[in-house]
Design a protein around this nucleic acid. Structure first.
Lengths: 266, 266
DNA sequence: TCCAATTTCGTACGTCGTACGAAGATGTCA
DNA sequence: TGACATCTTCGTACGACGTACGAAATTGGA
């Protein structure tokens, strides 16, 4: 056969789907022959987002979405190559819903804004945490977001690489907080009790079971947590504390470099 | 009947299973009547860990584990209440395999050790990232781990709550790095190409599709990343950078509080 | 010896993503 | 206008999965 007549197109087919709204995507020849499509990709993606918001990502099944439009399940496959691609479309589409506010002057406020925006979004759409993606950043809305995030860390005195890594730390941290909130909510749903109710219900068992293990620090910390808020953890406070420390560290880093004479580059 | 006639035992049944090896769990009456069990809970859990390490968490099915012992799938349910409980047992068991080294004197080294241990573990057993759990910390080995982590942040001048939150930030960050490494590996497996091969294969498509979108910062940063290492991201460097900033922030916080006169408490 | 307690496990149900191919709808061209 | 190529729709089916159910087999204690 022929070695390489021309490349068999290794390119990812869902890229064009992601960018379908941006001009610059060459208009495909308008010769759609068969029946007109009854819905649009956007409607399908929005329906998926609706379901995910309301019932979680596991409820986003091809059958459930199709049913919303009175379609057969297999019909969706003429809009979207498969479920995973649909989830990526959902992630990018929901990312496009948040408007990206003007960035404040104060560096600390800029970084806080980046983290808080991500956190609020993940609180509103926790299923985003479960959409693990091959190349997550490559949709149009995610690209816009990333550019905006870079703007927030631009001009602080970070190197290009450090800018990216700083954004990653902030977003990752916001995601972790959102994840712990999600798990807490899910635990209450599954067990049918609040966190403190669960501790009460399992108090005796825990004591018995841990009888000859000793956790002095964990006990002290757990007691302090239980007294301060009514639960083992309080994600809202974790957000404030951790975010403050991370930003402290970043700002100290750039300041040290600017004042200090000849520091090594990382 | 039961000693306490009232309460229908709200306590979590898998707690006893988790702590089955610690004495203090009252030995159940040794009157096992039926046929002797052919394997042990530990063997089952270890088999699950083996499979998860080798083929990922999705490959840990009841049928697959049972097959390893020549058992029927349903047999496992006399050892373990359900799959989710098994995953928690796996997580705790694998956590017990790592020995917890002596903590160094230097505060920075202590915090680095905590994060690096978590990171190494998650690299070795990436499926731990997917075991999302109701009450994750309550197994014996996870409790030991948590106590050890608290020791690492004890005596730095943090409040009890801050100790817990600091550990959470460190562990969460290590998890995020491990997650990005995992996604990178998976992407290469799924697409069958390395990251740079993927960029090359999609270069034209990306250019076309992004034709009228402008990402000056993302382009600059992406170029810098591509030149420095051969990929869009380098998790190992992210670990060093982010960890340094977080620790900077934490140490600055305690130092500021000790030197500064009357600061407010968070 | 016989019964109660346990383990084993075959079968089956309802779920999922999706492969396959038929049937129908539509546009293009002779 | 008729014929055909192309596209959408979707019913059916396959092979996974977790696990409910209940029968069969095995053991120890009375």
């Amino acid at each position: 056969m022929s070695d390489v007549p021309d490349q068999p197109d290794q390119s990812d087919p869902s890229l064009r789907l992601l960018w379908r709204h941006r001009t610059g995507v060459r208009d495909e020849p308008r010769t759609r022959r068969g029946p007109k499509q009854k819905v649009s990709v956007d409607e399908i993606v929005d329906a998926g987002i609706d379901i995910a918001d309301a019932e979680g990502l596991a409820a986003v099944t091809m059958r459930a979405i199709a049913q919303r439009f009175g379609l057969g399940a297999m019909t969706l496959y003429s809009y979207v190559p498969n479920r995973d691609a649909l989830l990526v479309l959902m992630a990018d589409q929901v990312t496009g819903r948040a408007e990206l506010p003007e960035l404040p002057e104060d560096p600390r406020k800029r970084l806080e804004l980046v983290a808080n925006l991500a956190h609020d979004e993940l609180r509103a759409h926790p299923w985003l945490l479960e959409v693990q993606d091959v190349r997550p950043w490559l949709g149009p809305n995610m690209s816009d977001r990333y550019e905006w995030q870079l703007q927030a860390v631009d001009g602080l005195g970070l190197s290009d690489l450090e800018m990216d890594q700083t954004v990653a730390v902030l977003i990752g941290f916001a995601g972790n907080i959102a994840r712990s909130e999600l798990m807490k909510r899910r635990a209450e749903q599954v067990t049918g009790m609040t966190e403190s109710e669960w501790w009460e219900a399992n108090y005796d068992t825990l004591n018995e079971v841990m009888a000859d293990s000793h956790y002095p620090l964990a006990n002290r910390v757990g007691t302090a947590a239980g007294e301060t808020y009514q639960a083992a953890t309080d994600p809202a406070r974790e957000l404030d504390y951790g975010l403050a420390r991370i930003i402290d560290g970043v700002l100290a880093h750039v300041e040290r470099r600017s004042t200090g004479a000849a520091d090594e580059l990382s």
